[in-house]
Amino acid sequence: MIKKILGILKDDGECVYKELPNGMKMRIEDFDLWYGKTQALKSVNMNIKKNKVTAIIGPSGCGKSTLIRSLNRMNDTIPSVRTEGQIWLDGYDIYDDTADCVDIRRKIGMVFQKPNPFPFSIADNIYYGCQVNGMKVDKDEVVKRCLKQAAILDEISDRLGDNALSLSGGQQQRLCIARALAIEPDVLLMDEPCSALDPIATAKIEDLIHELKKDYTVVIVTHNMQQAARVSDYTAYMYLGELIEFGKTKQIFENPKEESTEKYITGRFG
């Protein structure tokens, strides 16, 4: 019964259920990933707490984007990707053979590095997710609610029929967040959501992340350490495909245990 409610697993699939400790939303366990022959993730272990913001930082090429794309199986779209290990969501392994990535992605929304609205109207962009998932909802209401949650409704409430590409970069990115919220996910993944934006738009998105964590579990990849310090509750530091250190943001930034983390945080390399 629970399986069906979660909607993660095929109705008849026999699957392993593993109770996660209280307050934990996702758990990555001994996770490896290869692109062809190159290993991009090496035995990553990590916990993601419910209703908290978890940031992943590290120098470019360290595998942080790969890791976040693994959390909703977006890497399945790249040929030649191979994985080992488990990622648990509410006690179910999303890499289990019986799991279906389409349903997983419905539970775990994602916002990408570059704003990528569809070339539809703003309202259709929001409604798209409900439509493809067959959710019976009132379009106007969903559009208003999501835009409001993404703190963009006031700016664009009179242009809902306009093409989404006519918005500014920062507005586009908040629209993409609103779009991800429309399908009512449990987890929201953000892959460097501010890297293409100016400081003002970035500040707005950071405020938004604070608001969002009341209702959602947020995982954010960022190359900006100040941003990680500002928005996150937990921080993971990655280097060359390995998770070097994971802990409360305060501890990571003020008192890192690993030398490598300290070097990166103090800006001595990266």
Binding site: V102, N116, V132, N133
Partner: peptide, 23 residues
């Protein structure tokens, strides 16, 4: 058609065929 749009649609839980047809 840029790959971002496909990713965006798949990340919203659309199936591949829905993505192709609508996006």
């Amino acid at each position: 058609v840029p790959g971002d749009l496909r990713d965006a649609s798949l990340a919203l839980g659309a199936t591949k065929w829905q993505t192709i047809r609508k996006v």
